[in-house]
Amino acid sequence: MRAPALLCALPAVLATACTAPLREEINWNRVDLARERTAIEAFQAHDQKLQDVGWKLVRGNAGICARTIPAVGLQLQDMASYGSPAIARRALGLARDFAVQTAAAESPAGQSGAFRPNREIAALSGTDPNQWEAGARFDWERLARAHDHVDAVLADRGALTVAFADGGEAALAPVPVCATRFELMGEGRRAVADGNRVVIGIRFPAFAYPEDMFAGVVAHELAHNLLGHSDWLDHHGRRQGNVRRAEREADRLMPWLLANAGYDPEAALRFMQEWGPRHSGGILRERSHDGWDERAEFIAAELPAIQALLEESGKADWSVHFRREIAPLPAASSEQGASAGG
């Protein structure tokens, strides 16, 4: 979802890419490469914030969630996913298509120090993704294939070796995390979850909030995945009342997930108090959600139990102590999801 829209939304990188003909005919005299690179780096800064927060959440809750995968916290980028691969390559100084996008700060990739943004990649455990066929532009499928390849290598071999175009190499050992990816959309103001991913639009207002409050919205979306809401809604129907119950559960689980990730669980409440009056209140609010003040009350009601558990054991084990409002399906699939946006 991230790559195809990326350059349509960025202010500099191919502002006309979405209406340009498929075949690239570039007048390089009219291309401001410095501006293109600045736009890419601005997108990466938002993505870095999302990946850092997402990693803390899935890593901190890995001992509790039902499904975990081995991960290293590495995100790639593929020039084929840009509106003009040629301009993107030149702006970033790349000869190939694949490079580092982000490395989550506390992940194996982030801690290695080898995965600086835009470092060109030659191979992933012996496989060169640059050799895979790709479309002329806006091809997100090859990038998804590369991430799937990394996941498969980590699951099968228990390690990932990355060869860089500059001759360097880095070996990474994974750690278990809750099975969810985090993706930044190049446009939009919404946050959604589809069971395998949390996807947030670059214009979502909470990007401007302090990290712990921004983590609240990421935790809300992650909660949908961890609680299997989409499967439940598919089974029981997506009537307004059912959706509201799922949204309420996701709100209530927010502070639990934050606490296990090392954040102050009260940041979930502060997020709702900041975001709600501006974006979730009044007569125009979505009826699939409770009013923001009610949502804040539901979040606040979870805090005493979380604090008691943290003092007792240092962990807020929501798999045991969180009160479900909906009965989970007997065998929840990995294809889960829900709409959120607060």
Rank of each mutant, 00 (worst) to 15 (best):
residue 274 E to C: 02
residue 28 W to K: 00
residue 27 N to D: 15
residue 318 W to D: 07
residue 188 G to S: 05
residue 223 A to P: 00
residue 294 E to H: 14
residue 198 V to M: 01
residue 131 Q to S: 12
residue 41 E to W: 08
residue 328 P to D: 01
residue 127 T to A: 13
residue 91 A to I: 05
residue 269 L to V: 12
residue 297 E to L: 14
residue 331 A to Y: 13
residue 124 L to Q: 03
residue 207 F to Q: 05
residue 53 V to P: 00
residue 214 F to R: 00
residue 74 L to W: 13
residue 62 A to T: 09
residue 181 R to N: 03
residue 106 E to N: 08
residue 305 A to K: 11
residue 80 A to Y: 09
residue 275 W to M: 04
residue 236 H to T: 01
residue 27 N to V: 10
residue 132 W to E: 09
residue 76 L to D: 02
residue 27 N to P: 04
residue 266 E to M: 08
residue 113 G to I: 11
residue 302 E to H: 09
residue 325 E to N: 14
residue 138 F to Q: 04
residue 233 L to H: 00
residue 221 E to D: 03
residue 91 A to Y: 00
residue 114 A to M: 15
residue 122 A to F: 02
residue 296 A to Q: 06
residue 178 C to G: 08
residue 203 R to W: 08
residue 285 R to N: 13
residue 80 A to P: 07
residue 263 Y to N: 01
residue 8 C to M: 05
residue 276 G to T: 11
residue 145 R to G: 08
residue 179 A to D: 15
residue 68 T to E: 07
residue 89 R to S: 11
residue 43 F to D: 08
residue 208 A to D: 12
residue 7 L to K: 09
residue 259 A to W: 06
residue 116 R to T: 14
residue 175 V to L: 07
residue 54 G to I: 01
residue 6 L to W: 01
residue 196 N to P: 11
residue 145 R to N: 06
residue 333 S to D: 11
residue 177 V to G: 03
residue 133 E to I: 14
residue 96 R to M: 09
residue 292 W to E: 06
residue 108 P to D: 04
residue 88 A to E: 07
residue 314 G to K: 04
residue 112 S to V: 04
residue 30 R to A: 14
residue 203 R to D: 14
residue 82 Y to C: 07
residue 277 P to C: 05
residue 221 E to F: 03
residue 181 R to G: 10
residue 342 G to H: 09
residue 184 L to M: 01
residue 93 G to I: 07
residue 158 G to T: 09
residue 16 T to C: 15
residue 220 H to S: 03
residue 165 A to Y: 07
residue 154 L to F: 02
residue 29 N to D: 13
residue 72 V to M: 08
residue 229 H to W: 09
residue 278 R to M: 07
residue 110 G to H: 08
residue 125 S to L: 09
residue 68 T to G: 09
residue 256 W to K: 06
residue 10 L to F: 05
residue 182 F to T: 00
residue 202 I to V: 15
residue 231 D to V: 13
residue 197 R to M: 13
residue 4 P to T: 02
residue 191 A to G: 12
residue 66 A to N: 11
residue 171 A to R: 15
residue 134 A to H: 09
residue 293 D to H: 08
residue 297 E to P: 06
residue 213 M to S: 05
residue 97 D to S: 15
residue 264 D to K: 03
residue 40 I to K: 06
residue 138 F to Y: 10
residue 134 A to V: 11
residue 76 L to Q: 05
residue 11 P to M: 09
residue 242 N to V: 10
residue 119 R to F: 10
residue 253 L to K: 01
residue 286 E to D: 15
residue 42 A to H: 07
residue 260 N to H: 05
residue 67 R to A: 12
residue 159 A to S: 15
residue 93 G to A: 03
residue 76 L to N: 02
residue 91 A to P: 00
residue 75 Q to S: 15
residue 70 P to K: 06
residue 56 K to M: 13
residue 276 G to Y: 12
residue 105 A to N: 06
residue 213 M to V: 12
residue 251 D to A: 02
residue 122 A to P: 00
residue 153 V to I: 15
residue 68 T to L: 13
residue 326 I to L: 14
residue 110 G to P: 03
residue 265 P to S: 14
residue 294 E to C: 12
residue 263 Y to Q: 04
residue 335 E to K: 11
residue 313 S to H: 04
residue 240 Q to M: 13
residue 84 S to G: 03
residue 189 R to E: 15
residue 208 A to E: 05
residue 62 A to L: 09
residue 309 L to V: 00
residue 113 G to M: 13
residue 135 G to N: 06
residue 23 R to S: 01
residue 18 C to L: 02
residue 186 G to D: 08
residue 94 L to H: 05
residue 147 H to P: 00
residue 139 D to R: 02
